[in-house]
Design a protein around this nucleic acid. Structure first.
Lengths: 131, 131
DNA sequence: CCTTGACCCTCCAGTTACTGGAACCCTTAT
DNA sequence: ATAAGGGTTCCAGTAACTGGAGGGTCAAGG
């Protein structure tokens, strides 16, 4: 299977697939002309990676998850540990974003948005808290 | 005022302040010994930048906001446009993160997390949807 | 046989917003 | 003289790709 077919089936850009090979996440065979020749197992791996990435796992997390996936003697606690840590990070990010969103939404709604210069958004950004 | 004092007052790392100078966001004077010599206006600008960055605005947004801030003839609509666009982006990011969080939380809670290999997390990542 | 178009390849540079570190200068106190 | 604690520049690295140049390969059509 050539790269464009794999790209179509996994939803990953060909560039990304080449990149994943470069960093050792997959190792497709090569045919005589130098083209990458993907086996079903490669396709599988790439699909796995795509889903893990879609859940926000870092490449290193993905690498570790993949290793666990291929280790029949793994402990599910190792998988859960990675996922739980990621969940904590997501929650932190969410809290931060929500905070930003609230502040920003307040500012936006308080700004007239007309052709005059007065602007609570700029006023807030310029505010010195030290009185 | 030397850089460490500015760093202390703005909460920005000295490295970051130097970086902001490098990309033209501030232009502190120099004293005879080559040290950066920050005026109050520089401090002001840096504090402004720090707050804008804390709201998640990109450096380019910050640059534009700063320009508007210094333009007495600005229209508040221009400021509002930048902020609104950013708000939309934040909302999109929030939606994406929430989705990830929900899926991930489900997976985490369904995993025993013991020393056995069976793991719904890996099962989900490996799932082929094409039946 | 030649060309055209759709593939594929490698390699290099750029993205975002810093951060770490090396190597070195300035100032003040001991 | 030296040591501590500032400051300086410049280079490299981070995360995960993405874009583009320059160039082979392959199948079909004339």
């Amino acid at each position: 299977m050539n790269i464009s077919e794999v790209s179509k089936r996994t939803g990953l850009p060909a560039k990304t697939i080449r990149y994943y090979e470069e960093i050792g996440l997959v190792s497709p065979a090569r045919s005589g002309n130098g083209y990458r020749s993907f086996r079903d197992s490669d396709l599988h791996k790439l699909a796995f990676l795509g889903r893990a990435r879609a859940l926000g796992f870092s490449i290193e997390d993905c690498r570790n998850l993949m290793t666990l996936y291929e280790d029949r003697g793994r402990a599910s606690s190792d998988v859960k540990a990675i996922a739980s840590e990621h969940l904590v990070a997501i929650d932190a990010k969410l809290a931060e974003l929500r905070q930003m969103r609230n502040t920003l939404a307040d500012l936006v709604s308080s700004c007239a948005g007309d052709d005059r210069p007065d602007c609570p958004i700029l006023a807030d950004l310029a505010a010195k808290s030290d009185g």
